[in-house]
Every structure is written in C-alpha cells, then in structure tokens.
Amino acid sequence: MEIPYGVKERPDTGLNNAKLGIWLFLASEVMLFGGLFSAYIFLRTGVDDWPMGSKYLDVKMATLNTLFLITSSVTMVMSWASLKLNDFKKFKLYAGSTLLLACGFLVIKYFEYSSKFSYSYYPSTDNFLGIYFTMTGLHVIHVIGGIAVIAFLLFPGAKMWETDPERFTSRIEVTGLYWHFVDLVWIFLFPVLYLL
C-alpha cells in the first residue's frame, strides 16, 4: 500500500505531502535563524561600542558570494522549469551550474575564514566575530547539506527521471525551495554582518 498524496495533490489542500513537509521544515528554520538574529540584536544593543562589519570583514569577497548564491538560486529554479518542459539536458546543465556555484561559495568562504584566522581574528576575539562565525558557520552547514542533496539528485538519483518523472520533478521542486531559503538567509546575513 502506498501513502496517498506523495506526488499527487490532495484535492482540498491543493498540496502534496513533500511540499507541505518542506514548508513546515522551513518554518522551523526561520525560527532557528530567528533565534540567532534575535541574539545578534540583543548583543549589539547591549554594548556601547559595536564594531562595523567592514572593520574585520572583506566586503568584496562577500559581494561576490552574494552574486554566486543569487545566480545559483536562479539556475535552481530554471532546472525545475526545464524538467517541467521535459528538457532533461537543460536540467542537467542548470542543476550542474547550481552545484558549481554552491561549491564556489564554499571556496570563497574558506579563503575568507583563513584570512580572518591569519590576522588572529577568532570567535573568542569579541562578540561581533563570535556571532559572525556562528551565523555564517551555521549557514555554511546548510550550504553543504544543499550540495549533498543536489549532487545526489544530479548523479545517482537522476535515474528516477526514467522511472517516475513526476516524483523526480517534485523532488527537484522541494530541493529548490530549501535552496532558495539558504539564499534568502544569506541575503539577510550579508548586509547585517558586513555592511551595517
């Protein structure tokens, strides 16, 4: 017996299980990052001298990373649209670009972190750097998770396109929602940590 509405939409809610599930998961993620943002504001308003981000951080690198993530978000949604148009080659192209851009994000982040360490800027240096490493670190973990899922769907998981294309498309859509959320978090992290 199969669980109903795994791919097909339930008539009265208009949703399938996977999509509702991922949105609920994202709701909890909002609260997770919300807790950290709340901590950031609480710590910042609690002291008299909070350093400007540009004192420690490299705005150029972060801007480049922002462009990477935004582009990867577009390619992600385009890969889903390609599947909807039945164009599997284009899907591979777009999803592959997403993967590359995501890895590029990690490479730049690596250089950013190591340059901080080379100046002896550690999480323990002050609370600005502490919250910077915590928030971006948690975000990086989310990026790595996204990379794992996209890589799976692009290589071993792609066989499903032959056997059950609808379910495969739904998986890409759900992964896309998660990936856009990771992008969304960065869109707020970037100005909050680097610019303001």
């Binding site: 609920l24 709701a27 909890s28 993620e29 609260m31 997770l32 990052f33 919300g34 807790g35 950290l36 709340s38 901590a39």
Partner: peptide, 9 residues
C-alpha cells in the same frame, strides 16, 4: 515546530 528551534540556536 516553532518554539524548539530558538533553543537549538
């Protein structure tokens, strides 16, 4: 769903 994540943070 909504109250536990802040404790995780």
């Amino acid at each position: 769903l909504l109250a536990f994540p802040p404790l995780e943070a």
